[in-house]
Amino acid sequence: MLLARLTQANGAPGQEGEVRDLIRAEIEPYVDVLKMDTLGNLIAIKNPDAPGPRVMLAAHMDEVALMIVGVDSSGYLKFRPIGGVDPRVLVAKTVTVGAKKIPGVIGSKPIHLQRAEEREKAFAIQEMVIDIGAKSKEDAEKLVKMGEIAYFTTEYEEIGQNKVKAKALDDRVGCALAIRLLKEEVSFPLIAAFTVQEEVGLRGAGVAAYQAEPDLALILEGTTASDVPGTDKHKHATAVGQGPAITVMDRTVIPHPQLVQELFALAEEKGIKVQVRRNTAGGTDAGQIQLSREGVKVAVIAVPCRYIHSPVSVMSKDDFEGAYELVKSYLARLEEREGSR
């Protein structure tokens, strides 16, 4: 299954190779132009020279992970998060490190040896190390290079009522959606930008948009769901199972009002369940794409995911299908409009 393969591929910001190769192989048969830039964005275009609006679908390939920044004298690996990771989620996880995919664990002091008050404090990132079983610094340095990445090892699995658990759903769900949507037959130029380095500051998207020069862009994301026990209802950013979320504002973007209205109206017309993203924190590639050149109409459509930026996140397959149906319907609507010109 595509989403399973996508989430199990590894791709830290700036090192998206595995994901990019997988996507490239998937979409090659369906597109007319396939190019990469110096940052590693993968840009696919159907009907590049056709008349009509240049429509871009954008999803980022990178995921949060851990970068190796040192090896101590005993051969433990020191690391820092690349992208936003809550250090508290890291303790006692398994990882795979670097090009050689060396298995490792993030260890911690056994409970027996801790004082009671120690357990009330969160582990700081500086206190944690990755243990690959190396016997010495030299031993470790033979296997792992500075700047290599440790990835979570979570396997994709379908659980419960139509749910999925996996790592990196943010934003492999977007990638999976864009890949499927590229198969749609349209007559206007359709661009899919698989961007790099979103998690370290929306770095790839602006560069991709500058090249692709879209008139309109739909950013496909995995977004925070906070429908969990202990959270007040009015603090639920999105809820899993309530359909794809449409953004009205976040830290980086206020999407185009008419486009947002159109999407809500279309969802209602087609009977697709959608929700408003009810939180203005966080950012997406839309922030950079909207401000490219003289400005681009943008909207953000996101699949709600619980526990994003951790080793394991959970989403609903129904929300994923809803997002697919909504964007597909929107493309069909554009096609009708273009056809009647």
Binding site: K233, H234, K235, H236, V248, M249, R278, N279, T280
Partner: peptide, 17 residues
């Protein structure tokens, strides 16, 4: 402000713009 939630009694919650 942007409305982020409407509760059962009709009160609104909001975020800043």
């Amino acid at each position: 402000v942007v409305v982020t939630h409407i509760d059962d009694k009709g009160f609104l919650r909001f975020a800043n713009i």
